[in-house]
Design a protein around this nucleic acid. Structure first.
Lengths: 222, 222
DNA sequence: GTCTATATCCTGATAGAC
DNA sequence: GTCTATCAGGATATAGAC
């Protein structure tokens, strides 16, 4: 990590990161130019290359500063669930994964709704900007959740579990990325600002999907 | 629609559309330049503007030529299900929506896996490229499926149904967009080429989610 | 319908003064 | 650390010959 020796440079770094975060969430990586970012942040164009080396370095920094805290909260919630019961419920495991992301809506200090949307888009972004960062930041956390789900759903083969985690991840990513449009798309029928409601609905939906056809799926370890 | 008077121009049009389809699915709209498309299609750069007017016109044409047939097949399957039984099952409705998309994998004449991936990315693309096209092509079809689901799940409020359709749509979109990576991501545990297996798993997962907490959700029309 | 050539603007990145 | 000026190349789009 880069040292922060001067107060002014911290300001500049943060202003660039904040502006980039917003524009990347709204337009995507390729559609966001460094000129648009520096103009919005009211810093000089050359400041991006000075502080982050390149556009790719900036993108990685934008995701990097927020991803760690979210994943640490996920693991902390899973830890707490595992301390509270020898085998945590499916609902508790799913909630540990989902709540820290959805609660970003009311946590501007960690990126707020903007970073939530950015996170939802991450796997749809082209190129190799994020490959290494996600392997480092996401894989260890995902491995722990996979193990927790396996002991909760021992009748599922690893293939079945993978498919269902994938479907659940899709529902979550889509919700994060589209959260700002849902009220409009539903013609006012739903209220995305009711964070606890959204979390509970997502947990219920995915838990039901994870448990579907429990009787028929007992082909192993039953 | 533009008339096709000369054999040569049809070739050029189609070669551009095919090349664009592939590159858009792999890199996204903003990351794909017209130079890359025309170079891959081995036609002249100016041909895009001659045939499609602009890059945006090309993008709309790429989606436009494939979206209609897929949605018509969805509606045809729903029609058949409604002829076969007065009230089609939830599984039959979901399968009508999902199967025509997933079966693209083995239907190169309708765009194959490439268009399926492109479709999965559509709602994540920045800008207003596709707004009007989707309002025209998707909304009437979605309205029919909404009605079918409502009569199948009468205990759900329209808010609840919207949320669950949204979650299911996210699972489907994610699967379409990531299909080519699933074998790698699962370290060989799953086989995305087993189309019928993927369809059945998606239908089962989403149906279970749609039905979740049926007893608790009876707040209307029970 | 197709092509070459070009117009006009934007892109990421850097050198060098301050 | 910040700034101006600039580079080299890429972007979409078009004019005009064939």
């Amino acid at each position: 990590m880069k040292k922060r020796l001067m107060a002014r440079s911290v300001d500049t770094r943060v202003r660039i990161l904040d502006a980039a975060e917003t524009m990347l969430a709204e337009r995507g990586i390729e559609a966001t130019s460094m000129r648009a970012i520096t103009s919005s942040a009211r810093v000089n164009l050359a400041a991006v290359n000075y502080h982050f080396g390149s556009k790719e370095g900036l993108i990685i920094a934008v995701y990097g500063r927020r991803l760690g805290p979210v994943n640490q909260e996920r693991l902390a919630m899973l830890d707490a669930a595992e301390r509270a019961a020898e085998r945590p419920t499916l609902d508790a495991i799913l909630r540990s994964y989902i709540a820290p992301v959805m609660q970003l809506i009311h946590d501007p200090a960690r990126g707020g709704e903007i970073f939530m949307r950015l996170l939802g888009r991450a796997l749809y972004e082209p190129g190799d900007y994020l490959g290494q960062l996600f392997r480092e930041e996401m894989e260890p956390m995902l491995n722990r959740f996979t193990i927790a789900l396996q002991s909760c759903l021992p009748h599922l083969t690893s293939e079945e579990l993978f498919w269902r985690m994938h479907f659940g991840g899709g529902a979550l990513a889509y919700t994060c990325a589209q959260i700002h449009r849902l009220e409009l798309l539903s013609k006012g029928a739903c209220n995305p600002q009711d964070v606890q409601g959204v979390i509970s609905r997502l947990v219920d939906f995915i838990a039901a999907g994870m448990l579907s056809g429990e009787r028929l799926a007992m082909t192993k370890n039953g």
